[in-house]
């Protein structure tokens, strides 16, 4: 809990601990929300996109996630870095949106598949090789639960404990899901070439 407070929470020069920033948000200081946004919006946005939210909706999910902070700040547990906490809020919104979209699935299917985000800057474009394209397709084909653990642990590098807390499941469940998800991905990406 509060014991982590002396861990550096941010490399920013202002150095105010995340927990203090969240406390100020709790007191109604909207400017502190801007500070939190500056620190973590890019992380939240990246996770939301990797969880498979359509590119047109990513910014909206990021917005509602940070707006959630106004109410959720009261429940902040004092952890040194707010990143995993924010990612947890974002995951809830991604799930909610997915459920809502499920009801629209038939209509969406009629419109055709959402185009992928404009892939990357030209100089990176050459690096987008066939293997990455296969991994992207395989990731898109995973079930939402498997995708969550892949994104949080395998891509974002979170610990099993962090992921478990974000996803609301026991750590063992994280490892099990991760194992099955990796097997699916490996099968899809590598078996077809060998």
């Amino acid at each position: 809990m509060k014991a982590e407070r002396d861990v550096p929470s941010s490399t920013r020069a202002d150095g105010e601990p995340d927990a203090d920033v969240v406390a100020r948000i709790h007191r109604g200081e909207v400017g502190a929300l801007g500070l939190l946004y500056d620190r973590y919006a890019a992380d939240v946005r990246r996770v939301v996109a990797r969880l498979g939210v359509a590119s047109a909706d990513v910014d909206d999910v990021v917005q509602v996630t940070f707006l959630d902070v106004l109410a959720a700040a009261a429940r902040y547990d004092g952890r040194a870095s707010a990143k995993s906490w924010l990612v947890g809020l974002a995951v809830m919104h991604v799930r909610r949106r997915r459920r809502g979209l499920g009801r629209l699935a038939a209509r969406v299917a009629a419109w055709g598949r959402e185009p992928r985000p404009p892939v990357v800057t030209p100089e990176d474009g050459a690096a987008i090789d066939e293997e990455v394209a296969r991994v992207q397709r395989a990731l898109d084909a995973l079930s939402p639960k498997k995708r969550e653990v892949i994104v949080l642990v395998a891509i974002e590098g979170m610990s099993g404990e962090e992921a478990a807390s974000i996803l609301g499941v026991p750590v063992a469940t994280v490892w099990t899901r991760l194992h099955h998800a990796r097997r699916e991905l490996v099968d899809a990406v590598f078996e077809e070439e060998s």
């Binding site: 400017g31 946005r45 917005q63 707006l67 987008i128 296969r134 992207q136 991905l185």
Partner: peptide
Amino acid sequence: LHEALRRIPHDEPAELDRRRARAELLARA
């Protein structure tokens, strides 16, 4: 696999878009 997963591209917003989104967030907040 992990290396390929981490190379999946994700678009970064332009700085101007980021500032707009930030301003909008604070206005809504």
